[in-house]
C-alpha cells in the first residue's frame, strides 16, 4: 500500500526566459509506514518536492497521489489533516508574537477540534516539552525546544504523512540526537509515514528505510539504506556524495 506516490513531477519557478526548472520528472513511491529520504546538495530540488506536495510551490505538473487520492492544485483543508510538514529553521518557522499555546490552539481550531485545552496539553507531552512551556514565546525557547513546538504543530491535525525538511540541520548535534529520537518514537507511536529531506547522509541513513539521491532537479538513484551503509551506490554522483560524507 502506498501512502505517497509521485510520478513525473516537474516544478518550476518564473516564466518564459526567467523560468527555472527546480525539479525535472521526479518519480518515487513511499509505502505506508515507511520512512523515505531525499538527499542531495543545495539547489538539487529536494526541498522543492516537499513544497510542491504541500502546495507552497504552486507551479508544478505531473501526478501526486496521497493515500490513493490524486492531489489537486487547490487543496481542501482535509488534505492538511493528512499531510503536514516540519520546516528546516525553527527560528523562522514560529510566529515571533505567538506563544506556544497560541500556535497549537490556533492549529487545532482550524482543524475543527473542540477539546483544545486537553489536546494542547497532550501534544506538549508527546513532544517531550511538558506543560511549563505552554505559555512561553519563541524567544524564550532554545532551538531544540522550538523545533519540538514545530513538530507538535505538525502533529496537531493527526496527519498520516509527515514531511521533514532538514529538521535538524540548524541544531547542535546533541540536540539533533534528541530530535531524531523523538521523531523515531513519534513515527512508531502514531504510525506515521516520513518523507525526509536532508543533505546529511548519516542522518538519512539513521532515520530512513529507503532514499532517493537528487542532482540538479533529477532523481539519479533510489536505493535501500542497507546499500547506502554498504557503500554500494551505483550512480557515480551518489558514490561521490558517499565518499565526501565519510
Amino acid at each position: 500500500m502506498s501512502m505517497l506516490n509521485i510520478e513525473g513531477l516537474n516544478v518550476w519557478f518564473g516564466r518564459d526566459r526567467d523560468r527555472v526548472d527546480a525539479v525535472k520528472g521526479a518519480s518515487f513511491d513511499v509505502g505506508t509506514g515507511e520512512s523515505f529520504g531525499l538527499v542531495g546538495e543545495s539547489g538539487s530540488g529536494k526541498s522543492t518536492i516537499l513544497r510542491a506536495i504541500t502546495g507552497l510551490a504552486p507551479t508544478w505538473s505531473g501526478r501526486i497521489t496521497v493515500d490513493g487520492r490524486a492531489v489537486e492544485k487547490a487543496r481542501p483543508r482535509a488534505f492538511y489533516k493528512q499531510v503536514q510538514m516540519v520546516f528546516q529553521d525553527p527560528y523562522a518557522s514560529l510566529h515571533p508574537r505567538h506563544s506556544v499555546d497560541a500556535v497549537l490552539a490556533e492549529t487545532l481550531k482550524l482543524h475543527g477540534f473542540t477539546d483544545i485545552d486537553a489536546r494542547v496539553a497532550k501534544l506538549l507531552d508527546d513532544v517531550g516539552l511538558g506543560q511549563k512551556f505552554r505559555f512561553r514565546y519563541p524567544h524564550q525557547l532554545s532551538g531544540g525546544q522550538r523545533q519540538r513546538v514545530a513538530i507538535a504543530r505538525a502533529l496537531a491535525p493527526e496527519p498520516q504523512l509527515l514531511l521533514l525538511d532538514e529538521p535538524t540541520s540548524a541544531l547542535d548535534v546533541s540536540v539533533q540526537a534528541e530530535i531524531l529520537n523523538l521523531l523515531a518514537d513519534l513515527r512508531q507511536g502514531h504510525g506515521l509515514t516520513f518523507l525526509m529531506v536532508s543533505h546529511d547522509l548519516s542522518v538519512v541513513g539513521h532515520m530512513c528505510d529507503r532514499l532517493a539521491v537528487m542532482k540538479d532537479g533529477e532523481i539519479v538513484e533510489v536505493m535501500d539504506v542497507a546499500a547506502l551503509r554498504a557503500m554500494k551506490a551505483t550512480h557515480p554522483y551518489s558514490q561521490h556524495l558517499l565518499q565526501a560524507s565519510v
Binding site: 481542501p76 483543508r77 520546516f87 523562522a92 518557522s93 514560529l94 510566529h95 490556533e106 492549529t107
Partner: peptide, 12 residues
Amino acid sequence: SDYIAAIKLQGA
C-alpha cells in the same frame, strides 16, 4: 516567511 507557510499548511 516559514511561519506564514506553516499556518497556510493548516488550511488558514
